[in-house]
Amino acid sequence: MKLLTLNFLTCARRACKSSADAFPLHPRDVELEIVEAEPNPSFLSNILPRLEWPALVTLCAELGLPGLPGEAPEVAELTAGEDGKGGKLAEDLHRLLLETTVKEGALVCGSCGHEYRVKEGIANFLLPSHLV
């Protein structure tokens, strides 16, 4: 499961929908895997407006990955340079969002503490019936 996917996911419990602590989900005991993908700076610049940047910074810190700037970059920074490839920042974001995947482990809700398992790259957000 790509780290970019986590930008669009939250706790599945109804009661957590209105809680600011339910996003982002927190990785626990995860095994990461790099799956190479073709770099595409113009695509990255279209993803940028969709990102919850502070959540991404938190996620990176919790995974022990190299830090991101505290503030979201400008779109122009991702396509800067003579080659239009945006240099190291674009490379780092590409690796982080599109190539870094959670293979095994868990995602934990910061509001209710419920733990969702990830197996073979597929996250399971099904709840036992008493939690629905």
Partner: peptide
């Protein structure tokens, strides 16, 4: 385009609202 993932959930249960 860019396929993200397939996620195991009931309908849209874990999708962040408004996205």
């Amino acid at each position: 385009g860019n396929f993200l993932d397939a996620v195991n959930m009931d309908l849209t249960a874990a999708i962040r609202p408004g996205t």
